[in-house]
Structures are given as C-alpha cells and as structure tokens.
Design a binder for these strands. Structure first.
Lengths: 106, 106
DNA sequence: ACCCTTTATCGTATTTTTACGATAAAGGGT
DNA sequence: ACCCTTTATCGTAAAAATACGATAAAGGGT
C-alpha cells in the first residue's frame, strides 16, 4: 500500500461524525464494550457495530473478545501515522518554499 | 458545527487517494492550475475538478481565479485543526490514564 | 471579431456508504 | 439444561460518493 493510500484509508475511516464520537468515547472510557458505545451514540446497535468494524479494519482500534462482551480500545500507532502523513504533506510545502528561497537567493 | 463534525468533515475530505495525491501535488507545486493537476493524476478533467471542489468546500485548499486559469493552493490552518483534533482524541486517552493513575495513587 | 484553451458544471451510471431490523452465535448466570 | 444478555452478521433500502463525457462560460491571443 502506498503512503497516499494509507493516509486515505486512515482519514476515510475517521471521516464520519459517529466514528469520531466513537473514537473519542473509546479514548475516555478505557476498553468499553459495544453496548457501552451504543448507549452513548444514539444509533442502532447494528450500526454501531458496523462503524466499529470500519475502525477495526482500518487498524485504528482493536477488538478484544472477552467472551460475549467484546471490548474495544484505541491503537495509538496508526493515529501517529495519520498525523505524520498530514505533516508530511505540509512539510513538502515547506521544502518547496525552501527551494524557492534558495534559488532566488543565488 | 461541533468539533466532532469539523474533524469528520476535514478527514473525510482528505480520505481519498486521489485527493491525497492532489494535496501532495499542490504542496510541492505552488498554486498550480487545474490542468497541471489533471496531467499528474490520471483521471478525467471533470473528476479532478470535482475532487478540487470537495477540497475547497472543506476549506483545505483555496481557489484563486486568474482569468481562465484557476489556481489552487493549500490552506495550512485547517490542516493544523485536523492534527489538533486527532491529538485531542489521543489526549483524552492520556488524561484518562492520568486520572486512573491519580486515583490509584491516592 | 474570432478561435482556442481552460475549467466549472450538468447529467448520468455505477459503486460505496450508511442505517435499520432481524437473526444467529456465544457465553454467563442460575 | 435453561434462559438471558451481548454482539456480529445478513439482508436490504436509501443516500452519498465517484467517475465520465458533454457542455457552457470565460478569458487570452492573434
């Protein structure tokens, strides 16, 4: 997977109000189960489960099956990768500016 | 617009490989026009224009109509907002950890 | 004035996303 | 063993995203 695809996958997974809310909730409440999330999100249980699946498949969260109660928790690494990807885009801007400055100076 | 909605809008706008590629290109090449982007992206001109529109509407890039040649450039502020939003989610995690540590200690 | 380039928009088809209810699987408690 | 809770998955309907060609608008050059 290219870097662009990776960043697109990560941002797309975050890119829904319900999923942002879920991520924030997971961050506050450590490893809550699906039901905990559902009561806080005002969406059907199946819909919440689907959003959780999207986040798991993107690698942003992790499922820990504890019997009948599955718990979820945030994975920090992909978020760092996301931030790094955004910063990388902005950095290329800075690099380009640098180049222009250098060539103007000479 | 809530903070969650804002972050969702920003990440959703980034969340497509073509748009990531466009953003990266805009960052390297300062204020290129639509045609410049089109030749680099291998998509129809109308499709590229549509992607540019998505990015403009999210506020991530800016259009500067220079007559028949419209030029685009990156807006840095919303990217910072995006990063801040992600960091905010992770920070709540840290804050929660802090709380747990504090309560365990007392 | 004329043509040519550039690019946004329109119309449209296809695919994907989103949401829900219903159902099934999987344990936990008694 | 039985029921009850929990939750993923299936089926499905509606909405949104994605891509393209065709077209129109808007200047630039001669």
């Amino acid at each position: 997977m290219s870097q662009d695809d990776d960043l697109a996958t990560l941002t797309r997974a975050v890119g829904h109000p319900a999923r942002v809310a879920i991520l924030r909730f997971l961050s506050k409440q450590k490893t809550p189960c699906c039901g905990d999330v559902t009561t806080c999100i005002d969406l059907a249980q199946s819909t919440v489960s689907q959003h959780l699946k999207v986040l798991v498949e993107a690698g942003l969260i992790e499922r820990k099956g504890q019997g009948t109660k599955n718990c979820y928790s945030i994975c920090r690494e992909p978020f760092q990768r996301l931030i790094a990807g955004i910063e990388d885009i902005l950095a290329e801007d800075a690099a380009a500016t640098q180049k222009i400055k250098a060539s103007t100076k000479s």
